[in-house]
Design a protein around this nucleic acid. Structure first.
Ligand SMILES: [Mn+2]
Ligand SMILES: [Mn+2]
Ligand SMILES: [Zn+2]
Ligand SMILES: [Zn+2]
Lengths: 140, 140
DNA sequence: ACACTTATTGACAATGATTTTCATTATCAA
DNA sequence: TTGATAATGAAAATCATTGTCAATAAGTGT
């Protein structure tokens, strides 16, 4: 999905198209690693100087609401966002450079059924996240 | 593990045994759901009125350091702690009452190997967390 | 039991992150 | 072009966490 499409999505949901939003979207959409609000602010201000940090927060809020981005939880902190995968996907994070890869096709059915039986819980959701080293960082 | 054992652990690691710590430990150790620092503060103050919130933070810090508690990440927030499981375990959270259950015996080897091959990543860790309804909340 | 050393405490202040308020501005439908 | 109003950035407010510090209490040795 391109930045243009994100902006369209915003418009289609009744939000106006502004320079501030464009700048934020452009940064977040193409980032390969999760960014914090301040990081987005710093980077996006290179494209649009007048941008305010508050607007970054507000824009991220809307992008999350539209499922265009998702929050990334990490040992070091949980306030970073990354362009969201489509459908049911999971994250694989490089512990060195932060690069995020998506993967799908996990089959946790057997596991969840077994856990459900053992614990008596009705399982409705799961979070799975892998950590490691990306191809680049692995060699260096 | 009992509250008494936690206090012993603290002592064995050179920390002194105090009323403040006892109160915090007693609350956190027996809780079936993850508690935030303020929740711990409110609950522990019923046992020890003079307790300060700062001490709760400091005690939780030490308990985490000794792996007696662990941070719980949830959609609503990531600043709650629960008595830690032993060894490699995962969490199962009740979305209604917050009750936490541990489980082990997940076998993600096949999955991680497949992902490693596909992505080129070297996988070193994983986070797995299940969400659902506990036996009680399921019926009510 | 007592005295001594020093870790621990709670109050308060400082910081950092996020949210709210508000007057001004810019978007977009008419 | 105009007008209604969503969106903006600055500043202030709130909330969570961390740092400072003088007073206190835990544990050690006597
Ligand atoms: Mn999955
Ligand atoms: Mn596991
Ligand atoms: Zn990397
Ligand atoms: Zn429940």
């Amino acid at each position: 999905m391109s930045a243009k499409l994100w902006l369209t999505q915003l418009q289609e949901n009744g939000y106006r198209l502004t320079k501030a939003r464009s700048a934020v979207v452009e940064i977040v959409q193409k980032s390969l690693r999760a960014l914090t609000p301040v990081e987005v602010y710093d980077m996006a201000r290179k494209k649009y100087r007048a941008l305010g940090l508050v607007t970054v927060y507000r824009t991220l809020e809307k992008l999350e609401e539209l499922h265009l981005i998702q929050r990334v939880h990490q040992p070091m902190g949980c306030q970073a966002f990354i362009s969201a995968g489509e459908g049911h996907q999971h994250l694989l994070l490089c512990q060195n450079c932060g690069q995020v890869a998506f993967f799908e096709g996990d089959d946790l059915d057997i596991l969840t059924k077994s856990i459900a039986k053992k614990t008596g819980y009705k399982i409705q959701e799961h979070w799975l996240q892998l950590f490691g080293l990306c191809a680049n960082c692995r060699v260096n």
